[in-house]
């Protein structure tokens, strides 16, 4: 914790937070938005397919999106950690931040369960979508909605630094 707080006052983080440059805080915030839209969006589309939307799309073909989701997750995580360090004193004291973190961890575990229990089966498209798969799809949607909501509420509930 102390280490992160020290980083907050490093020259780089001072620049990110206070330079006013569009390449600083705003650009990182934008990367975080694009990343979350891709991660949660593709996850959501896969969940909808499992829940019965567009059932003519073979499930096996959707596995192509998993590397895409993880690449976008790296962008979201790196930009997110940068935003956290830049404003560590406020964010680390925010209970909403830890709720958001919990939602994200659970959503990622959920994603791995979907891959292992549903998509790893080579005959996934020969069988009807199992009750377990639908359950996991539903919980995935709930968890990403939870993570997004908690993320947005960090700017309004608990300690707020006035950064957007």
């Amino acid at each position: 914790m102390d280490f992160i707080l020290q980083l907050q006052h490093s020259a780089v983080m001072d620049w990110v937070r206070e330079s006013g440059s569009l390449l600083g805080y705003p650009a990182i915030l934008f990367l975080h938005t694009i990343g979350l839209a891709t991660v949660a969006g593709l996850n959501g589309a896969i969940d909808l397919r499992l829940l019965g939307v567009a059932s003519r799309i073979p499930l096996a073909s959707l596995t192509r999106f998993f590397p895409f989701i993880w690449a976008a997750f790296v962008v979201t995580a790196v930009s997110g950690v940068t935003l956290l360090i830049a404003d560590a004193e406020t964010k680390l004291r925010s209970p909403v931040f830890y709720i958001k973190l919990l939602f994200i961890i659970l959503a990622l575990v959920n994603l791995q369960l979907l891959r292992k229990r549903v998509f790893a089966n080579p005959e996934v498209d020969q069988l009807p979508v199992s009750a377990q798969a639908r359950m996991l799809a539903f919980s995935s949607l709930v968890l990403w909605v939870g993570a997004t909501t908690a993320g947005r509420l960090m700017a309004y509930i608990g300690p707020v630094a006035g950064l957007k």
Partner: peptide, 17 residues
């Protein structure tokens, strides 16, 4: 805000696919 961001990824996910 929460609704706007959930709407954003719901829309963008389908647009991407």
């Amino acid at each position: 805000e929460a609704l706007h961001f959930v709407g954003l990824w719901l829309l963008f996910g389908v647009v991407l696919v």
